[in-house]
Structures are given as C-alpha cells and as structure tokens.
Simulated scan of single mutants.
Amino acid sequence: MNICIFGSGAIGSYIGALLMKNGIKVSLICRGEHLKAIQNKGLLMQSAETNTEYSCKPIATDDPNNLEKQDYIIVTLKAHSAALTANTLTPLFKDSTTVVSAVNGLPWWYFYKANNQYENMKLRSVDPKNLQWDYITPERSLGCVVYPAAEIKAPGHVYHIEGDRFPIGEPDGSKSIRVQELSKILISSGLKSPVRKNIRADIWMKLWGNLAFNPISALTGETLEEIANNNKSCTIVKKMMLEGQAVAEALGINFPITLEKRIEGTRNVGAHKTSTLQDLELGRPMEIDALTKSVSEAGKIVNIPTPVIDKIYEKVKLKAIKAGCYINPNL
C-alpha cells in the first residue's frame, strides 16, 4: 500500500506520521526547509491532545517523478495551490489511484455525480483553469472534511493541537471498496474516519461557519470567541451564514442543527485565530476564494443572492491584496 501526502505542511505531515506509525508506506511531497529537515533528520510528530510523540523517516521529495505509483494520494495543499498544481500529480497515477481532496471550502468536484440538474457544473473559484477536473479527474476523487488542527513548530517538527475527525465519502454516496479500504486504514492509524453517505453535507457543516468567521476574523483581527461575543461582528456572521444556508438548502443540504447552535459551537472553541487570520498575520496567501467566493458562485448557480457574502469577500480580498496575501487564480 503506497499513500502519498501531496503538500505536507502541518496537517499533511501529521496525517503522514500517523500512517507511518501504522506501518503504511508513506511519501511526502513538500518543499523548502521542512523538506530538507525531513530528508536529513526525519519527521517528529508531537500531539498535545494525546500527549504522545513519534519520530519517523518517510520518503520525502519535492518532485513527484521521484516516487512510485500510488494507491492513494491525499492532497493537503491550500486551495489556491491545489488548483494551480493539479497537473503535477500525474506521475503518481496508475489506473486505480484515488485522490482525496483534503482542502477547505467547496471541492472542485462538487457537482460530479450530484444527481440533480447541476450535474458536472464546475466551480471556477476553486478550479479556475480546470486543472483539477482535467488532470486529476472527478472519477478518481473522494471527498473528506479535515478537522485536526496542527502547526509546524520548526522544520521537520509538526505539533498536533487537537482534533481527530476526518470523515470521507464517495461523490455518489456509495460504499465502494476503495472508500472502505481507506477508511479502515485511517481509523487504524488513529483518525475518526467513517465512510459518510453524504459527504457534501459534512463539507457544508464545516463551511457554514468558515464562510463567515474566517473572513470576518481577517477584517477585524478577532478570535472566534471574540467574534461570537461581539454583537456587531456576530450580526454580520449571522447574515452571511443565513445566505450560505439558503445556498446549501437549494442544493439539497439540510443542516441538522440551528444557526445559533453552530455559532455557539464556534464560540466554545475559545480564543482561537482562524487560519485566514493567521495567514494574514504571517504574510501567507489566504484561502478566501475557496471559503467565501465558492459559496457566492454556488449561489449564482442556484439563483440564490448572497449580497453580504459578496460585500465581505470584496473587502477581505482588497485587504489580502494590499498585504500581498492574495494569489490571483487566473494568472
């Protein structure tokens, strides 16, 4: 069994270490000082949640041509990078290779086997050049939702903060051999990775909060707890979430909890900075297209207006451009 983690930053390195510990042959695609450290000294994974640590020496490279053909590829790149580098995965493919898109926001394959009038429509906000659709192809794809939080403490050192949920699912909701096989591997490696019948609903449940809290945090500098407790910020969040809910429901998604409970759950996370705010503070590209614009684009497809989402997206995009934290997907 060969599994490649494509884009092994914090989350990818964490998943890779868990798989290595479980005896899986793992290859990491990464770059820079993190790559050099893994190649020279190996990878150290520490978990604050389980109070454990594990050292391993996975295969690590920045060139997919150096690796064997893979059974599974788990893409853990930021959404904008995944959209622009999909063609580089092809040396890893054999006929049966499956690709798991562990990326925030609506996935590029969202309308594949959607079983509705929007079948095979494409989301330009997450796949502007159709590289993922054309090179990976939706037939290879499994969906997932990433809940673990981790960070790179130093090159070659990943620190798992919390979370072990990693649900996966087929676009058509079937319990295929490949999705069941991967689920068993991930579960035996320490992740809660059940096969979900409607992975799109799981994706929306996470995105429902992210589409609002992430851009608002970048605009205000507030933590999740501060946004939820700030009446002005939370009022905007609620308007954005209601628009997102309307889009999701038009696509056949039913949320199992109320908006208030979803916000309360986010409030309970505490003084946590969203990944979007962290990226802004560190001068890194921000995933605002995947987290916010994709919802607006889906709204246009189903004729649901998203005026508040659109307004906030434009504001945070402008801030990202000024800070050098926005990658134009069309260049």
Rank of each mutant, 00 (worst) to 15 (best):
F213H: 09
L123D: 03
A218G: 15
T258Q: 07
S189L: 05
N87K: 15
G12Y: 11
L318M: 13
V237N: 01
E181A: 09
I187K: 13
C234I: 15
G23H: 13
C4I: 11
V179K: 05
L277D: 10
D71T: 12
P285E: 11
P256A: 05
I185H: 01
C56H: 05
N231V: 14
G169P: 06
A149C: 09
I309Q: 13
Y118G: 01
E139G: 00
G244N: 12
A82I: 06
P215N: 11
I257T: 14
P107D: 10
N51Q: 14
K175F: 14
N65P: 00
L92C: 01
N214H: 09
Q180D: 04
V316T: 15
A298E: 02
N115E: 14
M205P: 00
S8C: 15
D63S: 11
K94R: 05
V100C: 08
E243W: 15
Y326S: 03
F93N: 03
F213G: 00
A320F: 05
E68Y: 00
I5S: 07
G169R: 02
L84V: 01
I288A: 04
S13T: 08
L291S: 02
K175G: 00
S188E: 15
L92E: 05
G156C: 08
K175S: 08
F166Q: 03
L219H: 10
I327R: 11
K206C: 06
V100R: 03
A228G: 07
H34E: 14
E243P: 11
L19D: 11
M121R: 10
E151K: 10
I152P: 03
I309G: 01
L28A: 06
R200E: 13
S176P: 02
P194E: 12
R140D: 10
V302L: 04
E119C: 03
V316Q: 09
P58E: 09
V302M: 03
P194S: 13
D62E: 14
A298I: 05
N65E: 12
P155H: 06
F255S: 10
K36Y: 08
G283E: 08
G42I: 10
A149L: 11
W133F: 13
P91I: 11
N87D: 15
V295L: 12
K192Y: 12
Q117N: 14
G16V: 14
N254H: 15
D134Y: 07
E49C: 08
T61Y: 12
T223A: 01
T50V: 06
C4F: 07
Y159D: 05
A271G: 02
C144D: 03
I29A: 07
I216V: 15
I177P: 00
Q245H: 06
T274H: 12
L219I: 14
